[in-house]
Write a protein that binds this DNA or RNA. Structure first.
Lengths: 202, 202, 202, 202
DNA sequence: CATGAATGAGGGTTCATTCAT
DNA sequence: GATGAATGAACCCTCATTCAT
């Protein structure tokens, strides 16, 4: 019964490991990669500095893992939307929501990914960079489709639009939870989508 | 008379000192405050590590100075615009241009200010933070005025709008010079203003 | 009856334990005592780091055991030869063979003993050092006997001779198996003995 | 006046640097590379641990430098001898003296080179290894010449001879200064050469 | 002003060792 | 016996900073 073997796959100390990654994400997000001490991370999990290396080979590897989880399913989510049959307007709305939702679910991961990925070791940085560019390209394409379907103005600079959306969404990570009253992610996404759509309607 | 205030500022051995501040801004922007070594800064000016301390009392002070120049006249520029007699539409356009112009003139300073000000010593950080909040408030107010004058839709969340504008402008610092072909700052500002205005028109 | 002595030695769970000691000897020989990690030793036996401590109280104790087996029966072998009735020439040949034979049988143990015994804890080091000096003394005495029997030149410095033989034999451990074609230990011993004897013949 | 420029070549703080290298050599020789703490080295020069890195980029680099000085002019000395017009007998004597002389002049360097070069970083280790093999080859060749000139027995294994000489000489580093009364290097070299020559005379 | 030299605190990391399971 | 997990001391190294020259 292979399914049994799969089901038996021991998640083991993944619980503790996840706690460590969580702590790393939180500390990286708060102090930046180089400003974060491993002792601080360890302290948040209630273990000693050296014990971290039972879970990670290095601080860099911890950053890599955090960033990987941070970049998460941004891309797949967007591609699902792009391939769907929704009209362009709804696609854009969905794309914004797709980008904003992680803000509430794993803010430290995404914040770290956005602001600290430059400190990744070369290999990971390039790998992550490729994903980012692919994401930008997919969003650019989504805008282009909207134009082709005459849903959006034809004089738009598609790439500029994509960067604008990404930039505005990323900025939300900066202040969400601290400012702008107590807006929900859905509300913010609605407002943003509405304004963007009005701004670029054909 | 603002020129008097400027002239009163003691300029002394500014030439060399400015070179040092420039180097610090560049290195902070590239590697982050904690990722930047004083040796690297010194190297870019062609002096040795220890010699830096003829220009700065500490690395923190260097960051403070860079951030101060980074925040620069964002606020005064915006207040000038707010107090002018332009119609709301033009004010918004002017505000965006005011925010974007430094991207071409002193990108390292602004980039450092945006991404590294969290590492300032407590006093400077709070002082700078106050300026930021004041800037946000001024921009929020500018939007509110537009609504009062029936130039913008009345269902806008003013603060959200201000944060959106700021976020989108700041994002430009991330990619300007590397992506989006060879757009000029003015072109970007035009496109952004046009879209924003269409999106929020009454 | 030496076989009785051997049989009396408590053998217990020797099989696995010997495997562990072997691994320790190999790793110590290759990386040196301080360059060898317990994890590496454990890995070679297929167990985990912590499990080593069912076989040893400490890494130092492992080194002690390896060195003890390394020094092995050098001394008793040499004393047997010294007390035999062979002529001096043959005694020297036998002594050289006695010293070289372990090179093929347990090279890692001897190599470790020769190069790493300085890192033994004080007690063991002194104990082992005493054996070494006794060995040197026995060999020195063997040369002295040869002179007394007019088999060797009378102007020899006996201690120097002993050290020379030991040094040359120990050096074999350095290159045996890697260089000097595919000479057998017996061939090397023959060549060495022949030359030494010609060099010191009366 | 180029000679003036050369003479002016500032030896600078080479004096202090040499003291540091000396200390490193001594500590490496006594405790082995991995058994030697940088703090111990620093302590012997009277500076703090971190200050070492003003003179070295890393502990490995210190080992490299020590080994380089350790291997010193063994090779060039031997090549000079080989190319000279001395008879084979004298050449061998000179070669032995050439190998032994450093024992009195820089024992820590040579001891470290002999016993610790395995811990060099890959690049240096291979480079040094090449020198060693060249040295062995040169000595082997010197023996072969002696045979060709009918000065040595024709049934000698030349490589084995070379390794024997090297091994015996290197062994001197082990005990010189501690054992064998108060023999001078010259005396030891004489005794060794005499015996070797008798042992291999045609 | 600038430097060579040094510092000392702290950094990330390794590793022999322990212990409940 | 063996393991996963944790420890704490020590390690090598970096770096902002100081200071006599």
């Amino acid at each position: 019964m292979p399914s049994a073997a799969l089901a038996a796959k021991p998640t083991k100390y993944d619980a503790r490991r996840d706690a460590v990654v969580d702590a790393a994400a939180a500390v990286f997000a708060e102090f930046g990669y180089h400003g974060a001490g491993t002792g601080l991370i360890a302290g948040r999990v209630g273990i000693r500095q050296g014990s971290l290396y039972y879970y990670f080979a290095s601080k860099e590897e911890a950053l890599s893992e955090v960033c990987l989880r941070g970049v998460g399913d941004f891309l797949t989510g967007l591609e699902d939307i792009a391939q769907s049959t929704m009209p362009a307007n709804e696609k854009l709305h969905a794309a914004i929501l797709n980008h904003l939702r992680p803000v509430a679910e794993r803010p430290d991961y995404v914040r770290t990914f956005i602001t600290q990925r430059q400190h990744l070791p070369d290999a990971s940085r390039r790998s992550v960079g490729r994903q980012v560019r692919q994401y930008e390209k997919a969003l650019t394409e989504l805008v282009r489709q909207g134009i082709a379907q005459s849903a959006f103005r034809s004089d738009l600079d598609c790439e500029l639009m994509a960067l604008a959306i990404i930039g505005e969404c990323n900025a939300v990570f900066t202040w969400y939870g601290k400012r702008a009253k107590a807006l929900s992610i859905a509300q913010i996404a609605d407002a943003m989508a509405t304004r963007f759509l009005k701004g670029i309607a054909a």
